[in-house]
């Protein structure tokens, strides 16, 4: 694998994470429990669409075949998607959405904080913009996790169920593969073990404040980085890619 291929894979991985999160957040449009949350979730989705566009655009440049961010978003099938599985899980309820987003946005806050120092100037500049947004998403969803966990018996029960269901998907965020190892050695990608420690500390503190408990089970799902997904990604792409599949190259 050349460095250029590794960098392409890395951008696709980060870009797909942003894109699929954006899709799930957008589903809350007009469905959130209160109007303010409708605004919040769609604003967060917008930030992530922007980030996905930047990363996929850069990946397209690296691929060198004149690929655009739209080509990469709309013309790849699920085995070619490299997002972590947690991002594609459907939201069972609002608590599930908040716990999931808190887990992922906290990860992204620490990841992009580190990537600001990437030796690849494009990654560094995308990170410098993304970290400010991820910090805001992290703060917002942390507030909600604490409010729900430390709320009524019902909200605590739902938040705890979400933590239990989502926890087995969190370790995948910190997986390292050949791509990551090569880029980390060159200072392009971030040191994931370090980020894992910071993430774990933050999550532990939040769980304590929210009267929630992390499950003790050790089993963890994996596969996203190899293109092996849950059944949900296919359904997402079916809807997201419909127009470009039915009317290739349609513009408006």
């Amino acid at each position: 694998m050349t460095e250029q291929q590794a960098l392409y894979n890395y951008c696709i991985h980060l870009g797909d994470n942003a894109l699929i999160q954006s899709y799930r957040l957008s589903e809350w449009c007009s469905n959130a429990p209160i109007l303010e949350e409708d605004l919040a979730l769609t604003n967060m989705a917008l930030d992530m669409t922007g980030r996905a566009q930047l990363l996929l655009q850069y990946a397209g440049t690296l691929a060198g075949k004149g690929l655009t961010s739209d080509d990469l978003a709309y013309r790849r099938n699920e085995p070619e998607y490299r997002n972590d599985l947690i991002t594609e899980l459907p939201d069972a309820d609002f608590a599930f959405a908040m716990v999931k987003q808190m887990f992922v946005s906290t990860f992204e806050y620490f990841l992009y904080s580190a990537l600001k120092a990437s030796t690849d100037s494009n990654i560094a500049s995308i990170a410098a913009k993304s970290v400010k947004e991820a910090q805001y998403h992290m703060a917002h969803t942390t507030d909600w996790v604490v409010r729900l966990g430390d709320g009524t018996d019902e909200s605590n029960r739902r938040a705890q169920e979400a933590v239990d269901a989502l926890w087995p998907y969190t370790a995948e965020l910190f997986e390292t593969d050949d791509t990551e190892a090569m880029l980390t050695a060159k200072g392009i990608a971030a040191e994931l073990p370090l980020i894992h420690t910071r993430w774990q500390n933050y999550i532990t503190g939040t769980m304590l404040a929210a009267r929630l408990e992390l499950p003790a089970n050790a089993y963890h799902h994996t596969g996203g980085r190899k293109g092996i997904h849950t059944e949900y990604l296919g359904h997402i792409l079916t809807e997201m890619q419909y127009l470009q599949r039915a009317y290739p190259d349609a513009t408006w």
Partner: peptide, 13 residues
């Protein structure tokens, strides 16, 4: 603060 997010990405309510 009423809402951390507003009508555009750059504002809150």
């Amino acid at each position: 603060m009423v809402s951390r997010f507003g009508s555009t990405a750059c504002k809150s309510l």
